[in-house]
Every structure is written in structure tokens, then in C-alpha cells.
């Protein structure tokens, strides 16, 4: 099974970007690219070729669910798993997000020390399914 190496993070908050980048690169040993908006992610994804996309739900302009929809419609995902990143915790909300086609949902606040393991687990599960 191939390994999770490249992660694209889409989040508009600079503080979250900084700590998530540290967590992904230094703790997880991944190569990461940070996009501050859904539009930027749509632009960058083809060049960066991530193994997994971590997508914030609530962003100004194009929010997480609409970004996912556009990525799907433009055929930019090609099987790449998308994980939502959200402060919403109600089970019903999580289920709704999964129904949009996300592989999983990670709740915020997150622990920068365990985020990479969580992503690896999700990645492994996604690979088992395919």
C-alpha cells in the first residue's frame, strides 16, 4: 500500500494554517501546501497533486462544501480523499458532510500532535475501501 505523503490544507485562518503546517510537516513528516481559500485550492490542486485534501467547512466566499462540489464537478479529485475540518460536532451535521462525498470529518479544535496519525488512519481506511 502506498503511503500518505502530500496533504493539501484549505483553511482561511492564519493561526490554524501555521499550527497545522507545523503539525503536518514537522510532526507528520508530510509535504503540505496551504491554500487560504476554496478558489486557491481549485487552482493549485492539479499542480500539487495531493494524496489527501483537508478542507475547512466554514470559509468566507467559497465554503468547504461548495469547494468540494466544484472540485468534483471539474474532475480535479480523481479519487483523492477529501477530509472536512470543522468546529461542528453534531452527528447529524457530520453525516451530512460525509454524504457530500467526504471521506471523513475531523473536528476542531484538533491536537497538533495527533492530527497526522488521524490523517494516516483515514488514508489507510480509504485505501482499504478501494
Amino acid at each position: 500500500m502506498s503511503e500518505l505523503k502530500r496533504v493539501l490544507l484549505v483553511d482561511d485562518e492564519p493561526d490554524i494554517q501555521a499550527i497545522a503546517k507545523l503539525s503536518l510537516d514537522k510532526v507528520g513528516g508530510f509535504t503540505s501546501l496551504i491554500c487560504s481559500s476554496g478558489y486557491e485550492a481549485i487552482e493549485q490542486i492539479a499542480d500539487f497533486k495531493p494524496d489527501l485534501v483537508l478542507l475547512d467547512v466554514m470559509m468566507p466566499g467559497l465554503d468547504g462544501p461548495h469547494t468540494l462540489k466544484q472540485l468534483q464537478e471539474k474532475g480535479l479529485l480523481d479519487g483523492t480523499p477529501v477530509v472536512f475540518f470543522t468546529a461542528k460536532v453534531l452527528n447529524s451535521e457530520v453525516e451530512e458532510l460525509k454524504e457530500l462525498g467526504a471521506q471523513d470529518v475531523i473536528s476542531k479544535p484538533f491536537d497538533p500532535m495527533t492530527l497526522p496519525t488521524q490523517l494516516k488512519d483515514i488514508w489507510n481506511r480509504a485505501n482499504e475501501q478501494t
Binding site: E13, D15, I16, I19, M58, T86, A87, K108, P109, F110, D111, P112
Partner: peptide, 17 residues
């Protein structure tokens, strides 16, 4: 509030989150 609830805990401010 929504944004703080999702971020403060990550930086150690659990109670605020």
C-alpha cells in the same frame, strides 16, 4: 464565536473553546 470554538482548543485554551 464559531471560529474561536474551533481554534482555541488547538492552542491550549480548552476552556475558551
Amino acid at each position: 464565536l464559531h471560529s474561536i470554538s474551533g481554534s482555541a482548543g488547538t492552542f491550549g485554551f480548552d476552556k475558551i473553546s
